[in-house]
C-alpha cells in the first residue's frame, strides 16, 4: 500500500534531505565565527572606559538576547504559515524552535544578571530589557507547556501555533509597556550600551558573534527539524529508505 501526502510547498522527504545536507554548511561557519569573535572580544577589543573588562559579557549577552527574540519570531511565522496553508513542515519548524529559544532566553537572563551585579551591586535589576526577556521566557514556557499538554500531534501543532501568533503580536506591546513603565519610575537601567557608538574593534567581534549565533541556531534548527518531520510523517513510505 503506497500513499504519500503531497504538500504544495516543501514536501517532507525533500525538506528532510535538504536539511541534512545544509546542516554542516551552517554548523562549521558558525563555529569558526564564534571562535574568532571570542578572540576578538576577549583579547583584541579594548576595555570599556566605564565598565572596564566587565563589558565583555556583552559578547555573550547580546547574541543570546538577539537569539531569544529572533527565534520567537521564526517560531511565530512558521506557526502562521503552518496554520494558514496547513503545512506540517511549517509546524515542524515551529516545534523545533521552542526549546532552543527558551534556552537562550535563559542564558540572556543569567548573563544579564552577571553583568548587572558589578554595575549595580545586585543580581536582579528591573531593567526594561531584562524584564522584557523574563516575560519572553514565560511566553516560551507557556508555549512548551501547551504543546506538552496536548497528546495529539496535529492538535498540539495548531493550538501552539495560535498561541505563538498571539504571543508575537503581544511581544512589541509588552516591550513598549515595560519601557514605558521603566521611564515613569526611573528604574535603573544597566544596558545603556547602544551599539553604533562602539568603536570598530569593539563592534566587529559583536557582529561576528551575532552572525555566528544565528548560523548556530540555523544548524540546530535543521537537525531538530528532521526529527520533527519524522514524527509527523508517521509511516510515510519514504521514511523506509531513511531508516535503512
Amino acid at each position: 500500500m503506497n500513499w504519500t501526502w503531497f504538500h504544495r510547498l516543501g514536501s517532507p522527504p525533500h525538506i528532510y534531505r535538504i536539511a541534512g545536507t545544509l546542516t554542516p554548511w551552517f554548523a562549521w561557519p558558525a563555529g569558526l565565527l564564534i571562535v574568532a569573535a571570542l578572540y576578538g572580544g576577549l583579547v583584541l577589543a579594548p576595555p570599556d572606559y566605564q565598565q572596564g573588562e566587565g563589558f565583555r559579557i556583552l559578547y555573550v549577552h547580546a547574541p543570546s538576547a538577539w537569539l531569544a527574540v529572533m527565534i520567537y519570531g521564526v517560531m511565530a511565522s512558521a506557526a502562521a504559515v503552518g496554520l494558514i496553508w496547513r503545512m506540517k513542515v511549517a509546524h515542524a519548524v515551529a516545534a523545533s524552535c521552542a526549546g532552543v529559544g527558551a534556552w537562550f532566553t535563559a542564558v540572556s537572563l543569567v548573563t544579564g544578571m552577571l553583568w548587572g551585579k558589578p554595575m549595580w551591586g545586585t543580581y536582579w535589576v528591573w531593567d526594561p530589557r531584562l524584564t522584557a526577556q523574563l516575560i519572553l521566557f514565560i511566553l516560551y514556557l507557556g508555549y512548551m507547556g501547551l504543546r506538552a499538554g496536548i497528546d495529539d500531534l496535529g492538535r498540539a501543532d495548531r493550538a501552539s501555533a495560535v498561541l505563538a501568533i498571539v504571543g508575537v503580536v503581544n511581544i512589541p506591546i509588552i516591550r513598549y509597556s515595560v519601557e514605558w513603565w521603566n521611564s515613569i519610575h526611573q528604574a535603573p537601567s544597566v544596558m545603556k550600551m547602544d551599539r553604533p557608538s562602539m568603536p570598530l574593534d569593539m563592534l566587529a567581534p559583536l557582529l561576528m558573534m551575532l552572525l555566528g549565533f544565528t548560523l548556530y541556531f540555523a544548524a540546530i534548527l535543521l537537525v531538530r527539524l528532521r526529527a520533527e518531520i519524522l514524527r509527523r510523517e508517521r509511516t510515510a513510505s519514504w521514511i523506509r529508505e531513511v531508516l535503512r
Binding site: M1, W3, W5, D151, D152, L153, G154, R234, T235
Partner: peptide, 13 residues
C-alpha cells in the same frame, strides 16, 4: 479521506 488519531492511522483512503 485520511485521519490519524494520535499514532493510529484510523481512516485510510
Amino acid at each position: 479521506l485520511h485521519v490519524f488519531r494520535g499514532e493510529r492511522h484510523l481512516l485510510r483512503g
